[in-house]
Nucleic acid binder design. Structure first.
Lengths: 215, 215
DNA sequence: TGTACATCAGTGAACGCGCGTTCACTGATGTAC
DNA sequence: TGTACATCAGTGAACGCGCGTTCACTGATGTAC
């Protein structure tokens, strides 16, 4: 029960201060109105506390993604929804996201994070099964994940950058870029010698003929 | 002269220890074989030191990108080279990259980092001028940047993830995904009601006709 | 050429701080007889 | 029903540590007369 309170306070501290530096045992304990050593009754040490905080965040993210993906029939659309949910989750909980994805080192949280990754791999596999994507689902997933993670982590860590006003449009653009790019890249040969003007002209005529489903 | 030595030692410390936590005034001073307060003769405080270290890294990255982009005629290929150079720079200097791009807060380094961003915007603008890309170059740049930054920052911060062996292939896939995706996304309507099976079939027939230049 | 002086990079000792962690303890709770 | 006891969450005080930073200082260097 106190354990729950400690975890909630730790998250609240992150949110209120906006930095993980504020996540100290002393601050957490003070916030629960308890002495510092009490925390050790519930967590082996500071790392254990941080790990527990992360676990909750992963769980929440995983729940949102699988829930959102399950709500749509078409695998291509479902994949797009995964991406949007992911981005919005990150922007809704920037410090937690930072804690999850940008901490210095290694060897942690294999189960929870790979579960999340697994959801996306499943969504991608559904797309390779349906024929819209081709190739190794894991590599495709890494590409998609990179695009979305890159966008939100830039937004989070570079708040002073002159971002456009409409963040949703930026997310939308990134989702479309990643989706269309994956679908096209897996269909094109890796090397050739045409020039970019020819490519542009061909893409133009092709785009006219396409009837697209929004990813 | 000592200032130079301090900066070089700071970078060496980062590289050797693999973590920015090791970048303390005491450690830097000790490495130059000088007492700690001496550092204050050359840097106002610790932040100033860190900022100076970052500046050098930005300069190096900017030099590499503009140099590499200038070496190619075709704007589309030049853009692709920018992406590859960026990714390889990050993987060559992972801790420095982390220092540049993943530090908690704000209000820093406007000139150097926006110079780098500017190089890419220029490369993208060349592509919109040539017709291979369309739309706001800054938004296009953010998308491309997101994909590459996402990939390398995942590789750097999640070393324990079961990455595929061939990292170059992963970079290649991401560059292609981002490039093709940008080119296709800017040509397709944002909303429509076709389903993904139709989309897949059309992409297939269209891909057969395409003669592509590698981005 | 020789002396007096200003400059300033580097020194050595110390400061206060917040941190994670430890230790022996207290005091309420629930169970066994 | 009443007493003795074990359990264990939470306490209070203290530890050692490394950090950024400060201060008055020293001693070599170069310049002015």
């Amino acid at each position: 029960m106190l354990r729950e309170e400690i975890l909630r306070s730790a998250e609240a501290l992150l949110v209120e201060t906006g930095t993980e530096d504020a996540l100290t045992l002393r601050a957490v304990a003070a916030r629960v109105a308890v002495t510092t050593p009490s925390v050790y009754r519930h967590f082996a040490d500071k790392d254990a506390l941080v790990e527990a905080v992360c676990l909750r965040v992963w769980d929440e993210l995983g729940a949102r993604m699988s829930e959102s993906a399950a709500a749509v029939e078409d695998p291509w659309r479902a994949l797009g929804r995964c991406g949007r949910v992911y981005a919005h989750f990150a922007l809704d909980y920037p410090i937690q996201y930072r804690l999850l994805m940008m901490r210095p080192t290694a060897g942690r949280l294999p189960t929870a994070s790979t579960a999340c990754f697994g959801y996306v791999v499943d969504a991608v596999t559904a797309c390779t099964n349906s024929g819209i994507l081709r190739g190794d689902p894991e590599i495709l997933t890494v590409g998609l994940w990179s695009a979305l993670h890159g966008l939100v982590s830039l937004l989070i860590t570079q708040p002073d950058f002159p971002w456009p006003d409409d963040l949703d449009a930026l997310i939308e653009h990134t989702v479309r870029m990643a989706g269309f790019g994956s679908a096209l890249a897996c269909r094109l040969p890796r090397d050739n010698n045409a020039n970019s003007a020819e490519f542009a002209a061909e893409l133009d005529t092709l785009a006219d003929r396409l009837t697209i489903v929004k990813p």
